[in-house]
């Protein structure tokens, strides 16, 4: 499979978080189907030129969050129960959070946001 995780060096998020979000986005968009194998740690480390332990950490957390599962010696796979909709929801929530943060920092108060949500 083509690795479509892109690291953005101007991004304030740590690299392992960028990898996690990248995998989640691929699941959400269907670029990774349930049951599909993720790129191996070695392969991804060599491909992105980053420390394999960073990738291992991202995979471990994705596993704890239920997005993927690992089979000893075979690699990591996209969970069956993680429906694309779940991952998509999570992605949208993240966009919502960052938009809300931006609005709050622009001086819009919480009540105004709540009024908008209720509309």
């Amino acid at each position: 499979m083509r690795v479509i995780i892109q690291l953005d060096y101007r991004d304030a998020r740590p690299i392992y978080v960028q990898i996690k979000d990248g995998v989640k986005r691929m699941i959400a968009t269907g670029a990774l189907a349930p049951g599909e194998r993720l790129p191996g740690i070695r392969e991804l480390a060599a491909n992105l030129s980053i420390n394999p332990n960073t990738i291992a950490r991202a995979y471990k957390e994705l596993e704890q969050e239920g997005y993927i599962y690992s089979v000893g010696g075979k690699g990591s796979f996209v969970s069956q129960e993680t429906t694309a909709a779940d991952a998509q929801k999570e992605q949208a929530m993240q966009r919502f959070d960052s938009a809300a943060r931006e609005l709050l920092s622009l001086g819009v108060d919480v009540e105004e946001l709540i009024r908008r949500l209720e509309k």
Partner: peptide
Amino acid sequence: AIWGLIMGEVA
């Protein structure tokens, strides 16, 4: 390319 090779060696 070289960092990729070295990271591959680590893994």
